[in-house]
Simulated scan of single mutants.
Amino acid sequence: MKCPFCGDAESKVMDSRVSRDGNAIRRRRECLACGRRFTTYEYIEEIMPTVVKKDGRREPFDRNKIRNGVRKACQKRPISTETMESLVANVERFCQEYSGEEMSSSRIGEKVMQLLKDLDGVAYVRFASVYRQFRDVKDFLEELKEFQDEKKEDEP
C-alpha cells in the first residue's frame, strides 16, 4: 500500500477491524520509510449498473451524486449523517441488483424519493422539487397535496 505522505510502497498493518456496517475492513498502517500512520479500507468490489441519463447519455454509477442530493434535501433537518448514509447505502444496494446492466436515472431518483418520503416530508419535497423540475408553484402544490393525502392514509 502506497504511503499518502512519502509515496513509499512498504507499510505494515498495525490493526485490522471490521467496519461498523460490516461492509469493509479498516486497516491502520504504518509506513516503513517515514513512520507515519494512515488508515485504509478494504471493500468487496461490486459491479454497478451504467446509469442512463434523461438525455440518453450513459455514465458509471456514482454514489457521491446520490449522497450530495440527499444531503441537500436534508439540510437543516433533524436527520443524522448516519441516517443519510444508511439511505444512500439502501439506494446503492437497490442499484446493485442491476449489476452490469443499464438503469435509468429516473428509477434511481424515484427510489431516493420513496426512501425520503418515509424519512422526512420536508426532505422529500425538497428532493422532489429539484428532481422533478417543477415549472411553477402549481406543480409544487400538487406534489405537496399528494404527499399530504398519502400521509393521511397511513395514519391510524
Rank of each mutant, 00 (worst) to 15 (best):
V122C: 10
M84K: 13
R29V: 06
T40H: 11
K117P: 03
M84A: 05
L119K: 12
Q148L: 14
R126C: 10
V125T: 09
Q96Y: 02
D62L: 03
G22Y: 12
N23D: 10
A9E: 07
Y43P: 06
I79W: 07
E85S: 08
E143C: 10
D149F: 15
E101Q: 12
P4R: 04
M48F: 15
A73M: 02
K2D: 13
K2I: 15
C3E: 03
S19P: 02
F61L: 00
S16R: 13
V137Q: 10
G56W: 06
K54M: 04
C95N: 03
I79F: 06
R71K: 04
M103T: 00
K53M: 14
L115K: 06
P156A: 12
T81M: 13
Y41F: 13
E92A: 05
D55N: 05
M103C: 07
L87W: 00
D15R: 06
G35L: 10
K152E: 09
A33E: 10
V125L: 13
R20M: 08
T83D: 14
E146T: 15
I79S: 06
R71E: 03
A24C: 10
E146N: 15
R107L: 11
L87D: 00
V51S: 04
D55V: 04
E85D: 14
Q114T: 14
K145P: 14
V137M: 10
M48Y: 11
R77M: 14
I66R: 01
A89G: 06
T83Y: 07
D139S: 11
D15F: 05
G56E: 10
V130W: 13
R126E: 08
G100S: 09
D55S: 04
C95R: 03
F38R: 14
R71F: 04
K2S: 15
K152M: 03
V112G: 03
E85Q: 14
S16F: 08
G35C: 10
R135Y: 09
V125R: 06
M113H: 08
F61I: 00
R58E: 06
I108D: 00
A33F: 08
Q133C: 03
E155Q: 13
E30Q: 15
Q148F: 11
P49G: 09
S99G: 15
V112R: 09
N68W: 01
G121E: 07
I47N: 15
V125N: 01
M14I: 15
K117T: 08
E142V: 13
V125P: 03
S129R: 09
R57K: 03
V18P: 12
K54F: 07
T39S: 14
R17Y: 07
F147I: 02
E82Q: 02
R71P: 02
K54Y: 04
L141R: 12
V51G: 00
R77Q: 11
A24H: 09
V91L: 05
D55Q: 01
S86I: 08
G109T: 15
D136Q: 12
Q148T: 11
T39N: 11
T39M: 13
S104M: 10
E150V: 01
C3L: 03
G100I: 07
K72C: 04
L115H: 06
S86P: 12
R67I: 02
A33H: 11
R26C: 09
Q148H: 12
E150P: 06
K54I: 10
S19E: 02
Q96V: 09
T40Q: 08
